[in-house]
Write a protein that binds this DNA or RNA. Structure first.
Lengths: 193, 193
DNA sequence: TATTTGCAAACGAACGTTCATTCGTTTTGT
DNA sequence: ACAAAACGAATGAACGTTCGTTTGCAAATA
């Protein structure tokens, strides 16, 4: 009856799953692969999780909520559009570096969710994009950003971070702070008039 | 015995496969899905192709060669680094719009290749990246581009195009030429000193 | 007639998941 | 304090399904 369990093993499983999903993709990752990665047999996984999709689901929604929280914090601040975009960009970059494996699942593997979670996830995504778009539009209105199609700007910002979790290895030779600063500056310059 | 066949049906199959690989991923696409997409039964596919991986392989290497050709053309031109990067960027954007489905396979699904093709593909990729990197470095040397880590610039350029094949639908409301011009200008501005 | 194309049937392998059972460790009743 | 009961965690075996692919044969095409 008590739903509270020791979270340790489930967390281990989710972390291993996130790494496998990044390396091989969700569909190409079998429960036997995952079991081996945590030194168990496939059947034993089900003492800790209820399905393969549950793992993906939790990874996706944890990330969705992380970005939504970041957005809410940014929206509440009384600052320029430029400062808001910078804060969000830094959040994207930092998250991609600190939790690369989860972010991959969040970005690439969410389409394997089943309904109704697929629709719920897409709705969260659309909402986040819309709020980001409004910031960009406000910045263009104020002359902080150059005039351009807001969707091109929006999706290019999102995409430009996508190499980070594929390629970044800390300290070879760039540190996380290096990448965050350089990449943020790079993209912000593209936005300026 | 003769290996030369009427190419029509095989092309159809490859196009349908590219679309399915984009929408569901290589592993989540079954041969029965693919057969249905071209109004055949799964067994009939094997009259035209020799394996599922062959389809992926041909898509990946056709794209690899397309980008390598573009790179060779750019390298032969006597022009500024800026002009070279612009030409390559336009190639990336245009390819992503004209052949969105293939580019997805090329970008995301190549990891499902088997050896020795996996290594061969990665080697082609590394070579392309290296040649692109040299152009960026030359541009920084000449003061055409701002000084920055060349890898950050390189991978950010590659990534920024990745939304196109996920999101772009021609004429809603942007045309292909719109996107190409705006996106290219956007990224080039990020590179300037 | 010879070759190409399509299909039903079947193949072994792998898939995600369930099940009965086992083995320690806690929790409970007395 | 001690036995009984409950529980968490792990397992091998098996389930039904789907996977990519092969085979044998019919229909179409040349």
């Amino acid at each position: 009856m008590p739903q509270i369990r020791k979270p340790e093993k489930k967390e281990q499983i989710k972390e291993a799953a996130a790494r496998l999903f990044r390396d091989k993709g969700y569909s190409a990752t079998s429960m036997r692969d995952l079991a081996e990665a945590v030194s168990l047999k496939a059947s034993s996984l089900y003492n800790h999780i209820s399905s393969k999709e549950e793992i993906l689901r939790e990874i996706c929604f944890e990330n969705a909520h992380r970005f939504r929280s970041g957005m809410e914090e940014v929206e509440q601040a009384q600052s320029t559009a430029m400062a808001k975009v910078e804060a969000l960009l830094r959040l994207h970059v930092r998250t991609a570096m600190e939790d690369a494996t989860s972010v991959t699942a969040f970005n690439d593997e969410w389409r394997h969710l089943n309904e109704p979670f697929l629709s719920e996830f897409k709705s969260l995504r659309r909402d986040y994009e819309q709020r980001f778009r409004l910031i960009l539009l406000a910045g263009m209105e104020e002359g902080e950003f150059r005039q351009m199609d807001p969707n091109i700007a929006l999706y290019t910002l999102f995409s430009s971070v996508r190499w980070v979790y594929d390629w970044f290895q800390p300290g070879r030779p760039l540190t996380a702070a290096n990448v965050e600063d350089e990449l943020t500056a790079f993209i912000l310059q593209a936005l300026r008039p």
